[in-house]
Design a protein around this nucleic acid. Structure first.
Lengths: 350, 350
DNA sequence: TTGAAAGCGATACCAA
DNA sequence: TTGGTATCGCTTTCAA
């Protein structure tokens, strides 16, 4: 298009695409206006009236240079960002969690936030908080895979975060908490087994790392349910890895354990164990009742159909709304909400 | 600790935590040194010798103020970031993909990059590229959920991205490509069925949105395999939703379809369909052979055990190394690597 | 060994 | 209606 008097460019050292990234000053120069005008036009600043021809010139110049504003410069000047930080350590699997995250992202974006998942694998709690704080997020939603400490919350708040929200089994001082009380899941599972007349209940404890945060409270819930039961009941933790060998090993020792039911952490472990038990000749549910959790579709395909604990998670929309509310009015006391529902779904395996 | 002469702070409007975020200037003031010295100490600048007492003073001041550097300011000054952007639209599920992502994050972090997953749900290709470019990432690794266009690649490069890499079925002009040739999966599945003597082959097409990017090329690969076969073979696409009803409906029409085998997209759809077929009285593999893909553990628990196509993905480590190499030496031509292996694993269902 | 100051890119106030 | 300019927080060159 138009030739403009270029600033003395550094000698090109062979590389073709070594041209510098265009700035708003470049756009201004090409359009023949000031940088301020460029800013007004590109941001549709309503407090200032710019003539239509000028607007066109500016837009065309920006287009021609493929100008993209520099987020860092902008937020430096503005003194704040619209970043909502979602720390991730282990990328979690599972359709429930996945669609929840999608919904959350979608709704935050509609509220004009920039959703950034920040991988913090291998950082410990306070290191991680410091790393997050460097980005000056306006809000942090910790999905509970990283142990956020009260100090971590303090660091984030002092760095300007208006909202620090945890979603998970733990409640952290200073932060809003959406509590997913994992104990409830174990409690419901064991209650269900007790109702079915079982009294000697195994609880599968996955050996895969990173699951303790969920499996331990579920076990605790199971124990509570058993202890509360009039008439008494026994709870026995059963370590299990997610392999056929591990399951076969457990199944081989099964009769010696003297159990009449098992709550298997979730449906996947339940399916694994149930198959191993069947292969070892254990009748289900006659000899042993089996219940999982998550209500996976696949569990319904087994014979007998797998009983399960169905989990109702908070909607991403609700969490997005909470983020927005707290960002707009950060003054309040940290709130605590219980946002997980769990109920047993009895099918044929119990 | 020490009282320092505070700058005339703005009147506190009731809110307790409205104190401003500490900057390096605050640290300098508290330590009684210049901002330059603070920077030297906190960054361990080796080109400059700072006395040990000064270092201590600075560190203590930073500690006391809970100072956290401002990433935006830093990268603005530096002229570049260490951000590797991983755009995510749908949060993908599945253990294979999940552990790949974890590995990638981990290795990039070891190479001192900041891994940022940027949710771009609901943005179209070029909008998305512009949004990513605002962060001035040094590299973008597009995981193939978002359609990156040649223009998008251009935008990113002009904004300073040294490496633009796609991982997925598509190759995009201007970007390095790690090609996951999904057709290979369909091809292997159908080849396997052909070897087993099947000639009338159904191919399940999931109706869930977002899966077309994978299911279409898999179907194409299946067609290729059938067409290549000497003696001829038929391929029939079969729409299926991930529900028991949909599977039951398909199973009810099964005999009318005249098929003797089915490749069911992946193991989950395969498990779903296989159960429905069995419930409808179809013998497997006698009447109909079934094969899935992904080699899920759960597929091995079925009776008959599910045959599958095992997928070998590039390691996260290899991708991280590629990112680093291209960032350090961005000059080269875009490379193209085939990084997916697929092979059929015959079990009992075929 | 330390400090003063320029400048990265964008914005918004104040003048013209 | 438009332009000049101070400013955000940090790094780094140059001078002391």
């Amino acid at each position: 298009m138009s030739q403009l008097p270029e600033p003395p460019s550094p000698p090109r050292p062979g590389r073709p695409a070594e041209r510098p990234v265009p700035t708003s000053a470049d756009v201004a120069r090409l359009a023949g206006v000031s940088r301020a005008t460029v800013s007004y036009v590109l941001n549709n600043t309503s407090a200032v009236r710019i003539s239509e021809p000028t607007r066109r010139k500016v837009r065309e110049a920006a287009e021609e240079l493929a100008y993209v504003p520099h987020a860092a410069a902008r937020s430096l000047r503005a003194g704040h960002t619209r970043i909502v930080l979602l720390p991730t350590a282990h990328v979690p699997v599972g359709p429930l969690y996945g669609s929840f995250l999608n919904e959350l992202q979608w709704d935050l974006r509609r509220l004009d936030y920039t959703v950034v998942q920040y991988g913090s694998l291998g950082l410990d709690g306070d290191e991680a908080a410091r790393a997050w704080a460097e980005l000056r997020p306006v809000a942090v939603v910790s999905l509970g895979e990283i142990a956020l400490t009260p100090l971590g919350v303090e660091i984030l708040k002092r760095s300007g975060a208006k909202a620090v929200i945890t979603l998970g089994p733990q409640e952290v001082e200073g932060a809003h908490a959406l509590v997913l009380d994992q104990r409830e899941i174990g409690r419901r599972a064991v209650d269900h087994l007790l109702e079915r007349g079982r009294r000697r209940i195994g609880v599968v404890m996955p050996q895969e790392p990173g699951l303790e945060l969920f499996s331990e409270p579920r076990l605790a819930g199971a124990r509570t349910a058993a202890a509360t039961h009039t008439g008494g009941a026994r709870v026995e933790p059963l370590p299990l890895s997610y392999t056929e060998e591990s399951a076969a090993g457990l199944a081989a020792r099964w009769d010696g354990l003297g159990l009449d039911a098992v709550y298997a952490y979730n449906d996947e472990y339940a399916m694994l164990l149930m198959r191993a038990l069947q292969d070892a000749g254990t009748d289900i549910p006659g000899g042993t009742a089996v219940i999982g959790a998550d209500d996976l579709l696949l569990g319904r395909l087994l014979r007998p159909r797998l009983s399960t604990v169905r989990i109702d998670l908070v909607t991403g929309r609700r969490l997005a709304a909470l983020v927005d509310r707290v960002v707009r009015d950060p003054g309040g006391e940290p709130e605590r909400h219980d946002v997980m529902g769990a109920r047993a779904v009895g099918r044929e395996s119990t």
